[in-house]
Write a protein that binds this DNA or RNA. Structure first.
Length: 426
RNA sequence: GGAGAGUUGGCUGAGUGGUUGAAAGCGCCUCCCUGCUAAGGAGGUAUACGGGGUUAACCUGUAUCGAGGGUUCGAAUCCCUCACUCUCCGCCA
C-alpha cells in the first residue's frame, strides 16, 4: 500500500510515476472519496465528542443523584444523525481502503523505463553457453528415460502437473537441499518451515489480494472458512512480521524456506505448455529479508548475489536483468531477475526474481521497528528466489545432457546424490 | 468431534454498566537525593487516524481492553457470532 499522505500532498506526481509502470490512477475518484471522507469524518467526530460529553455529564448527574432526563433528551437529538454519519463514514473508509489496496507500488528512481520485457536492462552476464557437438534435446525428452513423467502428472491432476521417480526425484530433492544449505550456512538465513495454506490477511499483507485472486488456488472447509495455497514462500515468510514491532538492533531478519508454490496460471493459456517451465505446483527456496529502511537497497544487491551463488556453484550460464517499470510485479519498487541459459530454447529464462518492496508490504502488514527516537517506522521487505527448484532441474537437464542420454550431475550436487556423478539413461 | 476455562497496555495483573485509555506492581525514560546505598524520592511512559498549527515543537478530537455485530444517553464490564489459547475425553500421523 502506498502512503496516503503522498496522494494527499501530490496526487498528480504519484499518478505520473504510476503511469510509467502502466497503472492509471483515477485521481478524480480519489479526490472525491477523500473530500467526502474529510467532511464526514470531521462532522462525525464532532458529534461523537458531543455525545461523549453529554454521557459524561449524565454519569456525573446520576452519581450525585440529580435528574438527568434533560441531558438524555439532548443526546437523543444527535443520536440519529450520528448513526447515519457513522455508517457513511465506515462505507467511505472501506472504499478508500479498497482503492489504496489496489494501487501498485511506486518504482524506484533507478528502475529503467519501459513497458514490457523487451525494455529490461541486462546488468550482468556470467558463464558462456556451451557448444554442443550433437543435436540437443529439451528437458522433456532428456528426462523421459530418467523418471520425469508428465503423463503421470496429468493423469493424477491434469495439465501443468508432473511426477518424478528414481534418480530424477532424487536430483530434484538434492537441488532443494543444496540451495537451502547454501542460504543457511553461507549467507546467514534462518531456516524456516511454514504453513502452505494461509488466510486472506496474509495474502493482503504481501499484496496478492485483493487484486490477484484469480492467480491463486483457494480451498474450502465446510461452507465459509477458506484458506489459500501459497503462490510463493514469500507469503508466509514475510507475514512472520505482520503486526509486530521489531527492535531496530534485531534488523535485518533473514528467513529462508523450501516450500511448494501453487499458481493457477490464469491468463497464461498457451504459454510454456510443454515441460515444467510453468507448472501449477513447483518447489522453491525462498529468501526473505526484513530490513531497515536505510539499508534495503544494499540488501537487495546482496540478495542478488545470494541467488547468483547457487547458479555459480551449479556452473550454469546466466544473466541478471533489471526489470523495467512496466514489467515489475505489483508490490515491487525494484526487481532484478536472474535468467538461466536454456539451450533448447536458445535463450535465457527466469529462474529467480528478487525484489525490494520498500515499505509497500510493511504498511499493509503493520510491520514496524522502533527507531532511536522511540518512534515506530515501517520496515522494508525484500524477497527473492534462491532459487526456483523446478526450473533449476530443467536447466541442469538441458545444460548437462550428454549425447548418449546420460546426465552429468553438477559437482556441487554430487554429495547430495550419494556420490553419484552421472544419471545413466535407461 | 464433545465438555470446561480463558484472551485487558512492554510484562504481571485489577476491574460486572458512568468523570476508566484503563488500579497496582514490574520494566523503561527524565530529574532529585547520595551514609536505609545492588537503596530512596518526584514525574513521565500505548497505537492508529482526523482537525488546527511557522506541517517543527505543540494544541485538540475520535477510535482501540482477541475480532466482528448488538443492547444503552453511556460498554473492558451485558447479549450474539467468530478466531485463538489452555485442560479433560474421543479420534488420528
Amino acid at each position: 500500500m502506498i502512503d496516503i499522505n503522498l496522494l494527499r500532498e501530490n496526487s498528480k506526481a504519484v499518478a505520473k510515476l504510476l503511469k510509467e509502470r502502466g497503472f492509471d490512477l483515477d485521481i478524480n475518484k480519489y479526490e472525491s472519496l477523500e473530500k467526502d471522507r474529510k467532511v464526514i469524518q470531521v462532522k462525525t467526530q464532532e458529534l461523537q465528542g458531543q455525545r461523549n460529553q453529554f454521557s459524561k455529564n449524565i454519569g456525573i448527574a446520576k452519581g450525585k443523584g440529580n435528574d438527568a432526563s434533560d441531558l438524555m433528551e439532548q443526546v437523543n437529538i444527535i443520536a440519529e444523525t450520528l448513526k447515519e454519519l457513522e455508517n457513511q463514514l465506515s462505507i467511505i473508509q472501506a472504499s478508500l481502503n479498497q482503492f489504496l489496496l489496489n494501487i501498485p507500488n511506486i518504482p524506484h528512481d533507478s528502475v529503467p523505463n519501459g513497458s514490457s520485457e523487451k525494455d529490461n536492462l541486462i546488468v550482468k552476464e556470467s558463464g558462456k553457453p556451451q557448444n554442443f557437438t550433437f543435436e540437443i534435446k529439451d528437458h522433456v525428452d532428456v528426462g523421459l528415460n530418467h523418471g520425469l513423467d508428465f503423463e503421470l502428472g496429468s493423469k493424477l491432476s491434469g495439465a501443468r502437473f508432473v511426477s518424478m521417480k528414481g534418480g530424477m526425484a532424487k536430483l530434484h530433492r538434492a537441488i532443494g537441499q543444496m540451495m537451502l544449505d547454501v542460504q543457511t550456512q553461507e549467507h546467514g538465513y534462518e531456516e524456516c518451515y511454514t504453513p502452505y495454506l494461509v488466510n486472506e490477511e496474509s495474502l493482503i499483507g504481501t499484496g496478492q489480494l485483493p487484486k490477484f485472486s484469480e492467480d491463486l488456488f483457494k480451498t474450502s472447509k465446510g461452507d465459509d472458512d477458506s484458506l489459500y495455497l501459497i503462490p510463493t514462500g514469500e507469503v508466509p515468510l514475510t507475514n512472520f512480521v505482520r503486526d509486530t514491532i521489531i527492535e531496530e538492533s534485531d534488523l535485518p531478519l533473514k528467513f529462508t524456506a523450501h516450500t511448494p508454490c501453487f499458481r493457477s496460471e490464469a491468463g497464461s493459456y498457451g504459454k510454456d505448455t510443454r515441460g515444467m517451465i510453468r507448472q501449477h505446483q513447483f518447489d522453491k527456496v525462498e529468501m526473505v529479508q526484513i530490513s531497515h529502511a536505510d539499508a534495503s537497497y544494499k540488501v537487495l544487491d546482496e540478495m542478488v548475489v545470494h541467488a547468483e551463488n547457487i547458479l555459480q556453484k551449479l556452473e550454469l550460464p546466466y544473466r541478471v536483468v533489471s526489470l523495467c517499470k512496466g514489467d515489475m510485479g505489483f508490490g515491487a519498487a525494484k526487481t532484478f531477475d536472474i535468467e538461466v541459459w536454456l539451450p533448447s530454447q536458445n535463450t535465457y529464462r527466469e529462474i529467480s526474481s528478487i525484489s525490494n518492496c520498500e515499505d509497500f508490504q510493511a504498511r499493509r502488514l503493520k510491520a514496524r521497528y522502533k527507531n532511536l527516537d522511540g518512534k515506530n517506522a515501517f520496515v522494508h521487505t525484500l524477497n527473492g528466489s534462491g532459487l526456483a527448484v523446478g526450473r533449476t532441474l530443467v536447466a541442469i537437464l538441458e545444460n548437462y545432457q550428454q549425447e548418449n542420454g546420460d546426465i552429468i550431475i553438477p559437482k556441487a550436487l554430487v554429495s547430495y546424490m550419494g556420490g553419484k556423478k552421472t544419471l545413466t539413461s535407461k
